[in-house]
């Protein structure tokens, strides 16, 4: 348990220091930068996490899903606001990232929607989030949990 917390703190320090969390597992050449999330009120409401996913390889990569012990149903969702100013949210499906390109998960756009929380998201802690790719590759990042009113990774 202590070890997990220390790893989390290290990852959080690296993230806050502006360094990217390296892709530790899988054959995928993917780097995840500036990951962050907001604290939750209890466990009933879904959480959201944000990050930039960069394809550093020579081949396209396709993100097909998420997994985390924090939530039973983590999914990439996309918020859209129409011409009338009405916002709606739906599953984003697969996300292809061309070589050298990146995809930003940020407020009001794509986000990792964390449904069915298994524990509250507490400010100051971190949680592991695994990105699943179509070729079977996986990338796990430690996502820092910031305050409920956080606006970005630096808050």
């Amino acid at each position: 348990m202590k070890k997990i917390i220390m790893t989390g703190t290290l990852a959080a320090l690296l993230t806050f220091g502006g360094l990217s969390v390296p892709a530790l597992a899988g054959p995928v050449d993917v780097v995840v930068e500036s990951a962050w999330s907001r604290a939750s009120i209890g466990m009933n409401r879904p959480g959201a996490a944000y990050m930039t996913i960069r394809n550093t390889g020579d081949e396209p990569v396709t993100l097909i899903g998420l997994s985390t012990p924090l939530a039973m149903m983590p999914e990439i969702h996309e918020t859209k606001t129409n011409a009338e100013g009405v916002s709606s949210m739906s599953a984003a499906g697969e996300i292809a990232i061309a070589p050298g390109e990146s995809v930003a998960l940020e407020p009001g756009g794509l986000h990792a929607m964390l449904m069915r929380l298994q524990q509250p998201m507490t400010e100051g802690e971190t949680f592991p989030l695994t990105l699943l790719f179509v070729d079977g590759g996986e990338v796990t990042v430690e996502v820092p949990i910031l305050g409920i009113a956080a606006r970005g990774p630096e808050d």
């Binding site: 009933n44 409401r45 879904p46 959480g47 959201a48 918020t79 407020p107 409920i148 009113a149 606006r151």
Partner: peptide, 16 residues
């Protein structure tokens, strides 16, 4: 309040 993305963002923007 069960809105994970737009509402906390709007509330944070307004707070700012």
């Amino acid at each position: 309040t069960y809105c994970p993305d737009v509402c906390p963002t709007t509330l944070s923007d307004i707070s700012g």
